[in-house]
Amino acid sequence: MINLVRNEMLKLLRKKRLYVIILIIAFLVPLFTYAQFKEIQDQREKMGNQDWRTVLQQEITDTQNRLSSSRIQDEWRKYLKIRLSQQQYYLENDIDPRAPGAPTFMRIFVENSIDLLLPLLVMVIVADLVSSEASGGTIKLLLTRPVKRWRILLSKYLAMMLSISFIVLSVAVLSYGISGLVFGYGGWNMPLLTGFAVSGDELLTENVHIVPQWQYILMEFGLVWYVCVIVGTLTFMLSVLLRSTAAVMGIMLASLIAGAILVNMVSSWESAKYFFMVNLNLTNYVSGMATPIEGMSLGFSMAVLAVWGIAGFIIAFVTFSKRDIY
């Protein structure tokens, strides 16, 4: 099995996909670092004051003002209220939620890339894992070896897992390394709040507790890895089912983008919560953001994703070991 996985990794490396992904990340991170830097600078200029408490106080006042306006939608009001109570909690406990530093940047970066950017990168690797063998004809040589078909597919799946882990790891390393040049490398032990729960339009703070930022980041990266594996598994299944890599990419891209759009408008369509693509934003549960649909929770979303992932895995393996190859 190790030899088979090695073969798959060799092919992946030779196709240079992983390098492309590293390049994409290495290009985007400085971009976002600069954006973040500008934003902080901007805020400081506006306040004319270096103290974050004043800034936070200002934000709270802003939010309160917006809430008192009668023209805002119910949805928005709900979100603002949650945000407000969170901000107040930070202020009362003397915790700066946006203290700049490389770890903070890392955290914000993964939180924002979990539902689209990272799944897209995963897709680039996984989409042609099986379909390229079918369209290139090499599958005929691969499947006439003294190795059972499911073992060949499993080796490809394991290679996928390794690449996903590699992508997530390089996101961590690159975002820390590059942003640290600007923000400094400190801040691992900064206390952060987690455990927010949303019930109706109330922010439940009874389970809220403080964790050091490194623990918080570790948790978020775990969730990011989980989401990537599920998206990878579904792409993998499509790659088995379809001969054309372009079709695999098209379907995956369409559903991921559909997910990003749906999240913003499905709050009253309750059964939409069983789609995998509206459940990708797992890190939101950690930071205590409003859920797109009532009744969604971290456990629920992870379970929905697990069901989709397991189904995809089974479909992929059953089809692959039974299919006739022409």
Binding site: N3, L4, R6, N7, L10, K11, G136, L142, R145
Partner: peptide, 17 residues
Amino acid sequence: YPYLTGWENLEHFAKMD
């Protein structure tokens, strides 16, 4: 595999047995 050398192709298939 066009992106591998002839030798790597052979190695690839040899590893499977």
